[in-house]
Nucleic acid binder design. Structure first.
Length: 456
RNA sequence: GGCCCCAUCGUCUAACGGUUAGGACAUCAGGUUUUCAUCCUGGAAAUCGGAGUUCGAUUCUCCGUGGGGUCACCA
């Protein structure tokens, strides 16, 4: 044990409410959260709304709602627009010390108008800092000049408020996107001007679009809410986003939030940008959804099935319940369930299908007569079944006949009579879903159709 | 363009001087109780290029090349 008291870790997420909650913002929040939790530290959420024109309450709500939905809990919340007095105080002291000065000049925003902006007195030196992920980074700040840190004494700018707040809130680790690397030297300059301690920096690799450019709207879904609406669940998103640009040093890929907190380490963070791959996200989603309890999965599915499906003549909760495993096996995210519904993939469960006589016939079968005989035999077997039979029990009753007469010869006509489709779940599962008596009815119907077709 | 950052299969990544360069997603092939799906097995698939350092470079150094970020009285 060290005799030195470990400084309590304090991280923060500092989004500006000027746009929707971007998937990259969510990931940065996750990293900050994981790091803080891992070290029994504190995670602060701070809205950087000093730009009054562009900041919107609705965006702030979207950010807080989105993070809350993800399960990221902040220990304290600040709004920069409510801290103007603090910034003005620091501004005054800095000016008094001679590290900054008021400059009367023409407004860049409103040409013709004279304003008194506050500029930092740049010592014009090389700043180097240690990035936890990238190591030593140095930068000649001369090219920055005496940059503006406030529009006026009561209207501070981003770089100044960030530094003041991180100092006031005693933030120990600034974990943010790589796009902030070049902001770091000027923020360090401000730190030195106000006499603040330098935090540890960790710049995360960016999330990239498939063409390796910064992920933006034109690449499709970039908002967290987009993914939420597509049916991606919170644990999957957390899991995927964390592994995008970070690895635990083992082959483990499936993680719960608690496992991530436990395994998280800044040294596992990648340096290069990572392309966002929806296919892998889908895989994670399927993995996490597969852990749902029956009732949770039922609730999940009902959010995505279509009204059209609910309106089908034979719809019942009972059948839907029995259809659930089939849906689970065939879809990765909620939006796919909707899509499958729209394509009519699940109609067989709630509706007697229309039968194409030629489709029922197995390729090796000579005539409709043979097919008809088979279906008749099948109807006989099924008529003896109990409604409570399991899939296995159903299968066992049919299996003997199917192996005798030929699997394709028996199973294909059976399945097509039941579903009306060339591709569908296996007949045993279908019978289980719709029940033996409905199956019996459908087979009889199919027989009638074939009969009238062959007579015509 | 200046400055800064980065570079292993198509994608996410492992290998922190010595490995047949490993895993996952995707893909392809074969298999499991007909079709589709699931599942199982297997395959193909990568160290950006060039110099150095070293007995030995994916790994260290330098130079290219490529990609990205950033250059506001936005954040």
């Amino acid at each position: 044990m060290s005799i030195f008291q470990e400084k309590k870790v304090i991280t923060r997420m500092a989004p500006s409410p000027t746009g929707h909650l971007h998937i990259g913002t969510a990931r940065t929040a996750i990293f900050n959260y994981l790091f803080a939790r891992k070290h029994n530290g504190t995670f602060i959420l701070r809205t950087e709304d000093t730009d009054k024109e562009r900041s919107k309450k609705e965006f702030e709500d979207e950010i807080t709602d989105g993070l809350a939905w993800l399960g990221i809990k902040w220990d304290s919340f600040y709004r920069q627009s409510e801290r103007t007095l603090i910034y003005t105080g620091y501004l005054n002291t800095t000016i008094e010390k001679g590290s900054a000065y008021v400059s009367k000049e023409e407004s860049k925003m409103r040409p013709g108008e004279m304003v008194e902006v506050v500029r930092l007195k740049n010592p014009n030196k090389v700043i180097s800092f240690t990035d936890e992920i990238r190591g030593e980074i140095s930068f000649d700040t001369t090219e920055l000049g005496d940059f503006v840190i406030a529009r006026s004494i009561t209207d501070p700018l981003y770089h100044f408020t960030v530094v003041v707040d991180d100092h006031e809130m005693e933030v120990t680790h600034v974990i943010r996107g790589e796009d902030h690397i070049s902001n770091t030297p000027r923020q360090i300059l401000i730190q030195e001007a106000i006499g603040a301690l330098r935090p540890q920096y960790a710049h995360l690799p960016l999330i990239l679009a498939p063409d390796r450019s910064k992920l933006s709207k034109r690449h499709g879904a970039v908002m967290l809410s987009d993914y939420k609406h597509q049916g991606f669940i919170q644990p999957a998103l957390i899991n995927y986003l964390t592994l995008l640009g970070w690895n635990p040093g083992t082959d483990q890929e499936f993680f719960t939030l608690d496992e991530l907190i436990n395994a998280f380490d800044l040294s596992g963070v990648q340096k290069g940008g990572a392309i966002f791959d929806v296919e892998k996200l889908k895989w994670f989603n399927k993995e996490h959804v597969s852990g749902f309890s029956d009732t949770d999965y039922y609730d999940y599915v009902t959010k995505y099935i279509t009204p059209a499906l609910l309106a089908l003549p034979q719809f019942s909760t009972d059948r839907l319940l029995r259809l659930l495993p089939t849906i689970k096996e065939r879809t990765a995210a909620g939006a796919e369930i909707t899509l499958e519904c729209e394509k009519g993939e699940y109609d067989f469960a709630f509706q007697t299908p229309k039968i194409e006589p030629q489709m029922v016939k197995w390729k090796n079968d000579a005539s409709p007569k043979v097919t008809l005989q088979r279906l008749q035999k099948l109807a006989e077997i099924i008529s003896l079944m109990d409604e409570s039979f399991s899939i296995d029990e159903i299968k066992n009753r049919i299996w003997g006949y199917a192996t005798d007469a030929g699997k394709g010869e028996v199973l294909w006509p059976l399945r097509v009579s039941l579903t009306g489709k060339e591709r569908s779940p296996d007949p045993f599962t279908v019978i289980h879903i719709i029940g033996p008596s409905e199956a019996y009815t459908r087979i009889k119907r199919a027989c009638d159709t074939i009969l009238s077709d062959s007579l015509a």
